[in-house]
């Protein structure tokens, strides 16, 4: 059966890929910290974007999410991002109201 053998079919990742991912991560981290330290324009948006890029690299390459089947990828990514995103967005919406009242 197709799904049974898939464990062995999992492609072998060469160390080169990992080194590439590592270099990318280092560049992203460096840029992120630099941006935050220097306070460049659009810094917050940039940091969030870099954060997501890093998270993508770590989860998809190091945690092998890339080699999982699509429904699992979808459940993991949506399950986490959507739930946390909703919680964040809605309580921060309320937080803005609280700070407006206290001003």
């Amino acid at each position: 059966m197709e799904n049974l053998g898939s464990h062995t079919q999992e492609p072998i990742v060469s160390p080169k890929t990992f080194i590439l991912v590592w270099v990318l991560l280092m560049i992203l981290t460096g840029f992120e910290i630099f941006a935050a330290y220097k306070g460049i324009p659009w810094k917050n948006e940039l940091i969030l974007a870099l954060m997501l890029a890093q998270a993508y690299l770590v989860s998809f390459y190091f945690m092998h999410l890339r080699f999982e089947k699509f429904p699992l990828i979808l459940s993991v990514v949506l399950g986490v991002l959507l739930t946390v995103g909703l919680l964040c967005a809605l309580i921060i919406w309320d937080g803005i109201h609280i700070i407006q009242l206290s001003r």
Binding site: T83, L86, L90, W93, D94, I96, H97
Partner: peptide, 21 residues
């Protein structure tokens, strides 16, 4: 069920626009 929790908080002083949501 994840996006309805605020209906427990209509009188808590929550953001009224959030209440509408």
């Amino acid at each position: 069920s994840f996006i309805v929790w605020g209906h427990h908080m209509f009188v808590s002083g929550m953001n009224p626009y959030l209440g509408l949501f």
